Amino acid sequence: MTLLQALRGPLGLSGPRFGCGQEACGSCYVTLDGEPRASCTLPVEAAAGRAVGTVEGLGRPEAPHPLQSAFLAEQAGQCGYCLSGILVSAAALLARNPAPDEAAVRAALEPHLCRCGAHNRMIRAVLRAARVMRGEMAA
């Protein structure tokens, strides 16, 4: 069983999605000990004893994560299929680099395939969330 199958099946988490099954699209990304990882090919045993993070852990409806608010403000999602993996990767980036430049954001999101063409809005949203998290602007 893969980590993605365990998350979506017995654990009932629908955020990580099955896309390609070959680590090529990013829709299944989660964090494993804070680092973005594809969960579609990772054996569930490889996650034993490690911290697994999904988009469900980013925020709550009454208190969204700054990334979630910024993605809404920038209208950075269309169909939403790729967004859970992108948000997880963006959150991992901001955790290790609270002031990324555009090149760093592009590099962090590079593994993610978005067919809607919202890439530039996603980049703006991540940069906006970083500014909010640093207290440079209001949410």
Rank of each mutant, 00 (worst) to 15 (best):
L4M: 03
A6W: 02
R8K: 00
G9S: 00
G9P: 00
P10E: 08
L11I: 00
L11T: 01
G12M: 01
G12H: 08
G12R: 11
L13Y: 02
S14H: 07
G15M: 05
G15R: 09
P16A: 10
R17T: 09
F18H: 13
F18K: 08
F18D: 09
C20H: 08
G21S: 07
E23G: 07
A24W: 00
A24Q: 12
A24D: 12
G26E: 03
G26D: 03
S27F: 11
Y29D: 02
Y29R: 12
Y29S: 10
T31A: 04
T31S: 10
T31W: 00
L32G: 01
G34F: 11
G34D: 05
G34M: 12
E35H: 13
P36D: 05
R37L: 13
R37V: 15
R37M: 14
S39P: 07
C40T: 01
T41N: 01
T41R: 11
L42S: 10
P43H: 02
V44R: 12
A46I: 02
A46W: 02
A47P: 03
A47F: 04
A48L: 14
R50C: 09
A51S: 14
V52E: 04
G53F: 03
T54P: 05
V55G: 04
E56Y: 02
E56R: 09
G57E: 05
G57I: 11
G57L: 10
L58F: 09
L58Q: 04
P61S: 13
A63V: 11
P66C: 13
L67I: 14
L67V: 14
Q68G: 09
Q68D: 09
A73M: 12
A73T: 12
A73C: 12
Q75V: 13
Q75M: 14
A76G: 15
A76V: 07
G77L: 15
Q78Y: 12
Q78L: 15
C79V: 12
G80K: 09
C82A: 11
C82I: 05
L83Y: 10
L83K: 02
S84Y: 01
I86G: 07
L87D: 04
V88Q: 03
V88E: 02
S89V: 10
S89T: 14
A90K: 05
A90E: 01
A91W: 00
A91R: 10
A92V: 07
A92Q: 01
L94F: 03
A95K: 13
A95N: 08
A95R: 15
A95Q: 12
A95S: 11
A95I: 06
N97E: 13
P100H: 04
P100K: 05
D101I: 06
E102W: 05
A103N: 09
A104F: 04
V105W: 02
A107P: 02
L109R: 08
E110P: 00
P111L: 08
H112F: 09
L113I: 13
L113S: 11
C114Y: 11
C116I: 05
C116F: 06
G117F: 06
G117Q: 07
A118V: 15
H119Y: 15
H119D: 08
R124Y: 00
R124W: 00
L127P: 07
R128V: 02
R128C: 06
A129R: 06
A130V: 06
V132Y: 01
M133T: 06
M133K: 05
R134N: 06
M137A: 15
M137G: 08
A138C: 06
